[in-house]
Amino acid sequence: MTDSHQMLLISFTDRAAGRSAYEEALGLPGLRQAALVERSAEGLLDVPESHVQGAGRATAGGGLVGGLLGLLGGPMGVFLGTAAGAALGGAAENRQALEGGAGLIVLSSRVDEGASLLVVELHESSPRPGDDLAERHGGTLERMPAKEFAARVRSAEKAAGEPRPPS
């Protein structure tokens, strides 16, 4: 199998198994991000765990580049350049976080009361590690190309933003 950008959606009827699988998922090869979505017995939705590979890099990198460019303007230039670069990097990370949150909202309907869903975005060169993870923790795995998942999220966002016709 060639390297492919995938979303792994692993459902668990036991929330403890989902948490255990989340910890193990952080070591999957090609991991980009992971999140655990749980629904309590009362129906409340929670995202107790989430991880984004390289979080903070855009903010730190932007600040560093801005600071280096600011060297041309002296001490005040370094200060202003660092602040502007960090702000731009932070904005990029914030946009990514909002997109990830929309994806979790779309998936929330898949989580039954008292259950959990592990969502993993990764580049897979082999399906075996993801398959083994789901099997070891008693989860049900659905694999979806990341492009297809992104299209579903955009479609849901568009539908949510459209006014509803009068009933």
Rank of each mutant, 00 (worst) to 15 (best):
L141F: 08
Y22G: 01
A156G: 00
E99F: 13
A134P: 00
A97R: 15
M144V: 15
T13H: 09
G101A: 14
G18Q: 05
G138H: 02
G30P: 03
S108L: 07
E162L: 10
G43A: 05
E93F: 05
G56L: 08
G67A: 13
L71D: 12
P166F: 13
F79I: 10
A151K: 13
G18P: 07
R164D: 11
L104T: 06
D14V: 07
S20H: 14
A115P: 01
A25D: 01
N94G: 12
I10E: 00
E135K: 14
A86Y: 04
L8S: 03
G101K: 14
P127L: 10
Q6R: 13
E93C: 08
G54C: 09
M1H: 08
F149C: 09
P127C: 02
R128D: 10
A102T: 02
T140K: 09
L80N: 02
L28H: 06
S126M: 04
E24Q: 13
L28F: 00
A86T: 08
K147Y: 06
V120L: 02
G61K: 03
K158Y: 10
G103S: 07
A34S: 11
L80D: 00
S108Y: 04
A92K: 14
V111G: 01
E157S: 11
S116G: 13
G85L: 02
L9M: 12
Q6A: 06
L80G: 03
E38I: 02
G56S: 04
M144L: 15
E121L: 06
A150R: 13
G27Y: 06
D112Q: 14
S40N: 03
F12H: 04
S167R: 15
G85S: 06
P48T: 02
D112S: 15
G54Q: 11
V52H: 11
A58H: 14
G138L: 05
